[in-house]
């Protein structure tokens, strides 16, 4: 435990130190401007104090972001529109729904690719092409089109998450389902196993290490998709909405606190999959 804790803590302290230093550097201009107008001379202490406490700094100091997160999580009711928990919840539901849809789509495509020669030859180029389109370009169209057919709310955002998250699952699962070696497949043949039996008994269990790794990437991609999906919906709710509103009004502290919440959310979701991975693979004797 200690051997991990010490390097991690050291790293965090270094980041925070650099962050504070950068805050002084980036916010200094505004501090000098204010001092000039007020006609006062700034000494170093005043400068530091000012750059770390501006209302709309270019780079808010860590404690400002921390305070903002504290106010908008602990001190607000979760039903409040100003609660970051509320916004995180909205984003998380879209992320998780999109992730589930994306994982299902990815697995279905992978099974098709592994078992059908036609799909093997034809699907992969389309899958790769789909990921070369910038998601920012396609997200508003998905929202608008789905809105036009009467689908609003969670699902359109989840579709964007799905669009991003199915890709790592397809790639990982194709590799995973093909991971049994020739001997293992021959062995199935000697028992005259059907393709379904081969799948359930051999290919699927063998693919599990690949499955969990793909799911971790898919979850992170899914979160990005959900946030991007919240931008063109008019910034109603969600972490993406907080980011957009923050940038409209120059609320940098709000932007940074939303960013940190998004990072924490990603860490929690990916961490959950990681825990599931360790548990499952250990039980399967694959780790």
């Amino acid at each position: 435990m200690m051997t991990r804790l010490v390097p991690v803590l050291t790293f965090v302290i270094v980041i925070i130190a650099v962050w504070y230093a950068a805050a002084v550097q980036l916010n200094a201009n505004w501090a000098y401007d204010k001092a000039k107008r007020a006609g006062v001379e700034l000494n170093f202490t005043d400068l530091v104090a000012d750059t770390w406490s501006q209302e709309k700094p270019r780079l808010p100091a860590p404690h400002q972001v921390g305070a903002e997160i504290w106010q908008t999580t602990v001190e607000k009711k979760v039903t409040s529109k100003r609660s970051l928990i509320f916004h995180s919840w909205i984003t998380m539901s879209a992320t998780v729904l999109g992730f589930i849809l994306g994982t299902a789509l990815g697995c279905a495509l992978a099974i098709g690719i592994v078992y059908s020669r036609v799909m093997d030859m034809s699907v992969m180029p389309w899958v790769i092409a789909s990921q070369t389109i910038p998601i920012l370009a396609i997200a508003p169209m998905i929202i608008v089109v789905l809105n036009a057919v009467g689908i609003t709310g969670l699902l359109p955002k989840a579709m964007i998450s799905m669009y991003l998250s199915f890709f790592p699952v397809v790639v990982g699962m194709v590799k995973g389902l093909r991971s049994p070696d020739a001997m293992q497949l021959d062995q199935m043949r000697t028992w005259n196993a059907s393709r379904a039996q081969e799948f359930w008994h051999l290919r699927l269990p063998s693919s599990m290490p690949y499955f969990f790794t793909s799911m971790k990437i898919a979850m992170a991609a899914s979160l990005v998709g959900a946030i991007v999906g919240e931008l063109p919906t008019g910034a109603v709710a969600g972490l993406g909405a907080r980011l957009l509103a923050g940038s409209y009004y120059g609320q940098t502290i709000q932007i940074w606190s939303a960013l940190l919440m998004a990072a924490a959310l990603a860490a929690i979701l990916v961490g959950l999959i990681g825990a599931l991975q360790r548990l499952t693979l250990k039980r399967m004797g694959l780790s």
């Binding site: 001997m183 021959d186 000697t190 005259n192 008994h201 269990p205 004797g285 694959l286």
Partner: peptide
């Protein structure tokens, strides 16, 4: 007709099954 059993050079047991489970695998398939 499953007329033969084949033993390969490597044991090729499935790590997620117990020894018993591995031995039962062909029986399950059949």
């Amino acid at each position: 007709d499953r007329a033969y059993g084949y033993v390969f050079q490597a044991a090729g047991l499935y790590p997620w099954r117990t020894v018993e489970g591995n031995v039962q695998l062909p029986l399950e398939i059949m």
